[in-house]
Simulated scan of single mutants.
Amino acid sequence: MLSRLLAVLVLLSAMQAGGEARAEGRLRIVEQFGTVYLPLHVLRDQKLIEKHGKAAGLDIHVEWTKLSGGAAINDALLSGSVDIGAAGAGPVIVLWDRTKGSAEVKVIAALGEQPNYLITSNPNVKTLKDFTKADKIALPAVIVSQQSRLLQIAAEKEFGEGKYSALDELTVTLPHPDATAALLSGSSSITAHFSNPPFQEQALQNPKVHKVLSSYDIMGGRITPTLLYATSKFRNENPKTFKALYDALNEASQWIETHKAEAAETYIRVEQSKLEPAFVKSVIDNEDVSFTTIPQGTFKYAAFLAKIGAIKNKPASWKDYTFEVLHDKPGS
Rank of each mutant, 00 (worst) to 15 (best):
residue 234 F to M: 00
residue 223 I to F: 07
residue 186 G to L: 01
residue 197 P to I: 08
residue 215 S to N: 05
residue 269 R to S: 13
residue 229 Y to K: 03
residue 200 Q to A: 15
residue 186 G to F: 00
residue 220 G to P: 09
residue 197 P to S: 13
residue 250 N to V: 13
residue 195 S to N: 12
residue 259 H to I: 07
residue 196 N to K: 00
residue 201 E to R: 08
residue 267 Y to E: 06
residue 198 P to T: 07
residue 262 E to Q: 15
residue 215 S to R: 03
residue 199 F to L: 09
residue 189 S to P: 01
residue 256 I to H: 01
residue 245 L to G: 11
residue 247 D to Q: 13
residue 254 Q to K: 13
residue 226 T to G: 05
residue 191 T to F: 06
residue 216 Y to N: 12
residue 215 S to L: 06
residue 229 Y to Q: 03
residue 252 A to Q: 05
residue 240 K to E: 02
residue 242 F to R: 14
residue 193 H to E: 04
residue 216 Y to T: 09
residue 197 P to L: 11
residue 243 K to F: 03
residue 257 E to R: 10
residue 190 I to E: 04
residue 215 S to C: 07
residue 206 N to W: 00
residue 209 V to S: 02
residue 188 S to T: 15
residue 189 S to R: 04
residue 195 S to A: 14
residue 244 A to Y: 10
residue 213 L to K: 04
residue 242 F to T: 03
residue 216 Y to K: 12
residue 250 N to L: 08
residue 241 T to P: 10
residue 190 I to K: 09
residue 215 S to W: 05
residue 199 F to E: 11
residue 219 M to Q: 13
residue 216 Y to E: 09
residue 189 S to G: 10
residue 226 T to P: 01
residue 211 K to A: 12
residue 216 Y to G: 06
residue 229 Y to D: 06
residue 252 A to K: 02
residue 267 Y to Q: 10
residue 221 G to Y: 10
residue 201 E to C: 00
residue 267 Y to D: 04
residue 220 G to R: 05
residue 259 H to D: 08
residue 192 A to T: 01
residue 199 F to W: 12
residue 251 E to G: 03
residue 229 Y to I: 02
residue 198 P to V: 06
residue 212 V to C: 03
residue 259 H to Q: 11
residue 212 V to Q: 04
residue 238 N to G: 09
residue 200 Q to W: 00
residue 225 P to Y: 03
residue 246 Y to D: 03
residue 243 K to A: 15
residue 199 F to R: 00
residue 265 E to W: 02
residue 202 Q to C: 09
residue 183 L to N: 04
residue 249 L to R: 04
residue 231 T to G: 03
residue 195 S to F: 07
residue 197 P to Q: 12
residue 188 S to K: 10
residue 246 Y to K: 13
residue 254 Q to C: 04
residue 254 Q to P: 01
residue 214 S to T: 13
